[in-house]
Amino acid sequence: MHHTIDVKNLHYTYPDGQVALRGVDLYIAPGEKVALVGPNGAGKSTLLLHLNGILRGDGEVQVCGRPINDKTLGAVRAAVGLVFQDPDDQLFSPSVFDDVAFGPLYMGLDEGSIQQRVEQSLDAVGMRGVERRVPHHLSGGEKKRVAIATVLAMEPEILVLDEPTAGLDPRTRRGLINLLRELPQTMLVSTHDMGLVAESFLRTIVINEGRVVADGPTQKLLADDALLESHGLEAP
């Protein structure tokens, strides 16, 4: 089977000596949607950056059944759509169109298909018609949606999102939650939004100080007050 994420004993230390991951293990089955929670500095973003080879720590990371190395890097990046925490980092092109077209362009698609994918993915996030705008002038929620579209345009098998609901107003947040629910991809979503976790994810992984400290059904974890307490979390 494909569309899996398999991480074994992953360690990572930043160049300045900051140890961020100390032996992470996790497996995500095809089509599963999993939440990743943990306090600030737990290592969530660092872990997600390993899933398409932006960072390469010690240990084993397999995506879609293949280990990440220089040979598979291109394929892995096409298979894993990574949406960054700050949409201002994700949307780096001078116009929305250029940004959504970026991934498909580097996948070597022809112009017609690129055009089509841009339209489809903006449609999927409800953002048709902003193609010519400068990303900077979009609102926070619009930026988030377009950021997701930039990844959808690559038609990835796995979606990895870093704090998708941070800084959104309630209605925009609601729209985004619905969108995540509709998307068919295998999904790993890091978040501090426990409401989102309770509502949209059957399974949750808790990570703290660079280690997985709990992994199981969301309902069970959210009922475990001692666990939540000791890792700085709260039930919604």
Binding site: L49, N52, I54, G74, R77, A78, V80, L82, F84, D86, D88, D89, Q90, F92, D98, A101, F102, G103, L105, Y106, M107, E111, I114, T150, V151, M154
Partner: peptide, 22 residues
């Protein structure tokens, strides 16, 4: 920021070559 931007580009397949549509 430039590091994060580079990461965002790389994760969408950027290989150092500049490409653009006609």
């Amino acid at each position: 920021r430039s590091e994060r931007v580079y990461a965002a580009m790389a994760s969408r397949g950027y290989d150092g070559e500049v490409r653009a549509l006609v």
